[in-house]
């Protein structure tokens, strides 16, 4: 038994799911949102002769994806340690 109690197990999983869902909201926002649906609005902000929406669709969303993955890895490491279920 890796967790001290079932409560701990549930709390750990709930925190993981919350973090994951929050990051997935950002993931969807920058790609489907900024890159596609909200592009007409965002293009009002000029970037390199076109608009911010175009930039998000072709470059920006990828940078955000990168940040999300590393951020998740870092936060989960902290969470693993907090609950004593890390694999170090």
């Amino acid at each position: 038994m890796a967790f001290k109690s079932d409560d701990d197990r549930n709390a750990y999983w709930r925190k993981n799911i919350n973090l994951m869902l929050t990051l997935l909201v950002v993931w969807a926002l920058v790609s489907y949102g900024f890159g596609i649906l909200l592009r007409p609005m965002l293009d009002a902000i000029p970037v390199g002769g076109v608009g911010l929406g175009f930039w998000f669709a072709q470059n920006g969303s990828i940078y955000v994806f990168l940040f999300l993955v590393f951020f998740y890895a870092k936060k989960m490491r902290q969470l693993d340690r907090e609950f004593g279920v890390d694999d170090d």
Binding site: M20, L23, L24, W27, S31, G35, I36, F54, A57, Q58, N59, S61, I62, F65, L68, V69, Y72, A73, M76
Partner: peptide, 24 residues
């Protein structure tokens, strides 16, 4: 042009799903 953005976002955004939901 712009319409090819689906490949740029699709083939990279999948790694977010992989890293957050599957790989570990």
């Amino acid at each position: 042009g712009y319409d090819a953005s689906i490949f740029l976002m699709g083939w990279t955004g999948g790694y977010v799903l992989l890293a957050l939901c599957l790989a570990p």
